[in-house]
Write a protein that binds this DNA or RNA. Structure first.
Lengths: 320, 320
DNA sequence: AAGCACTATGCACAAACGTGCAGAACGGAA
DNA sequence: TTCCGTTCTGCACGTTTGTGCATAGTGCTT
């Protein structure tokens, strides 16, 4: 983009959003055509020059949101969706709103931890650009599995975050689960791994979805070849309800004694809770049990979820 | 506004600004007409539910802005205006942009000091609503003069600020200048005055214009019957260049020994400099000398001014 | 219950806006 | 310089949005 083009965009944005001129008037002022102004403005929006955000009145909001807020002590954003939408469309809507809600929270010098999965993938596709300096995107958990290194899928997500915020991307090149806890211990002492772990320890924002063991169609983790028969059996017969970044927990939010976690590569729950801003994105009512566990564990400070899930979350018999 | 209407507005705003639906689609979703949605959205914007802000890239911005930023160490917002506009139209544009720039800075529990004058009056007319709690608007300096109590003019400004931000308004019912410094001393010990002074001491934001002694058509202070012949003569023969909230200063920003200030009711410069955020709004190139003085005195952390003034500010021979 | 004042709604029209397309302008490479 | 590929621009069209006006709804008074 030529030097004067972006300054034209700034000028147009000021005139349009701050002074309420029409594009026509702006065109005359910039000696160009109205269509160019239209394009300048959309580039100003896309590049994050113009930030539009919605501050829902925290107290007086729709009851659904305030009930969740009161019960779970999280900052909740209920995404309105019509019930005629299917799962995929809902996810898309939730992801779009999540992406735009996250935008304003990202700042310079941020260290942003990002998990991976279908939810995060959808979110990453809708991020709006925002110029920041010296920000880092760090992968929360490994993505390799028995069939593939899982690199492309997870790294696409990371890359999109990185380019939206002009941030350095730090991948975590380990499998999602080690076969042996001992290998993990060993690797965790490697300096290359240590670098990532130390970044994770300094995260200012973490963004993740949840997996739910009993989801109608299960998440990547449960179906993607990351776990073998035995592991899945253990999960099924234990009282694990879900996971965040491949770290498992029970309905009450506890995780002690879940052996699988000793082989998992995500940050343990205590560490995750250290992060100042922890954004959980959920779409699809079938994740409700996993979500309940995550909330019980206090994993999220911000929750973005679709309306249907929000409704089930507050209904007491939602545990079906 | 009925309870469900504002929640409809929130919903519409989310669908429109965060999910990119058309108003038509939103209308179907809310089972209402498209025109109602249009109106819901504009009420959402007006009520501050939707916040649009422009983050000008601090480093790479147009040189004009960055030169001022570098030279005077203030956060500067140059308001683009066509040069065919007259003073009044320019003021209006600057005021509109100032009002919208200030909006996002106002927060709950803020104590906002507001001066008065034609600039502030214009700004007050363009404020966008924003819901805050327990904010206070406090008047920076008295407004009475020899002819009138000056109450209505200044208090209209205050009232508009108050209602835009849902804030309590604290007027300062004293003349702009006392006739005798001794009277001021006495009044300053009154408890009613003390209350205001203590609020001022705790200000988190101050908003003011500048007066310039040599302005083409002089500000309220110099023309409105606030000062008598003698005072004006003293000003003319001294090296005073301008004032902020009826407190005068010289080109180098100094104010010591200016006797008029002992009778003036505005906060002294040292006190003003204590305020975290000090927003100076300037429209009209003839205020340039006053502005230079104010900047030399370090009175502003944020400067909003029109393009022509910005240009004169950086040109070395602007002192004409 | 009727009357009244005020607000909200939908319609219809005009204004404002986004975008595919064809041509112009630009920036190398030969 | 000419050529070619790429990007930018303005036009024209269809879509989307704002708004005056007549009507319907709502709440308060008598």
């Amino acid at each position: 983009m030529t030097p004067s083009r972006s300054s034209d965009a700034l000028r147009a944005a000021q005139l349009y959003y701050l002074q309420d001129l029409t594009m026509d008037a702006i065109a005359r002022e910039l000696r160009t055509s109205r269509s160019t102004v239209s394009r300048l403005l959309s580039s100003a929006r896309e590049s994050g020059l113009v930030q539009i955000q919605i501050r829902s009145p925290l107290d007086t909001g729709p009851e659904l949101a305030s009930m969740i807020r009161a019960e779970y002590k999280v900052d909740v954003h209920v995404v309105p969706v019509v019930d005629t939408l299917n799962e995929a469309e809902t996810l898309d809507r939730v992801a779009m709103q999540a992406a735009r809600t996250i935008g304003p929270l990202v700042d310079s010098n941020a260290i942003i931890g990002v998990a991976w999965g279908s939810t995060l993938s959808a979110v990453s596709r809708h991020l709006t650009r925002k110029i920041t300096h010296d920000s880092v995107i760090v992968q929360l958990n490994g993505a390799g599995n028995m069939q593939t290194t899982g690199i492309t899928y997870a790294s696409d997500i990371m890359r999109r975050f990185g380019s939206a915020y002009g941030a350095r991307v730090e991948q975590f090149p380990v499998p999602a689960f080690f076969d042996h806890a001992a290998t993990k211990k060993a690797m965790w002492n490697e300096r290359s791994v240590q670098r990532i772990l130390q970044l994770q320890a300094r995260m200012s924002i973490a963004i993740f979805g949840v997996g739910s063991v009993d989801a109608d169609y299960p998440s990547h983790v449960y179906a993607g070849g990351y776990l073998d028969e035995d592991d899945l059996n253990v999960l099924a017969t234990s009282d694990v309800v879900g996971d965040v970044a491949t770290v498992f927990f029970r309905a009450d939010g506890s995780a002690d004694g879940i052996t699988l976690n000793e082989r998992s590569t995500g940050p343990d729950l205590a560490q995750l809770r250290q992060v100042r801003r922890r954004i959980c994105v959920v779409s699809g009512a079938s994740k409700i049990n996993g979500l309940r566990g995550a909330l019980a564990a206090g994993l999220a400070t911000d929750l973005i979820l679709d309306e249907a899930s929000a409704r089930r979350l507050v209904s007491f018999d939602g545990a079906s």
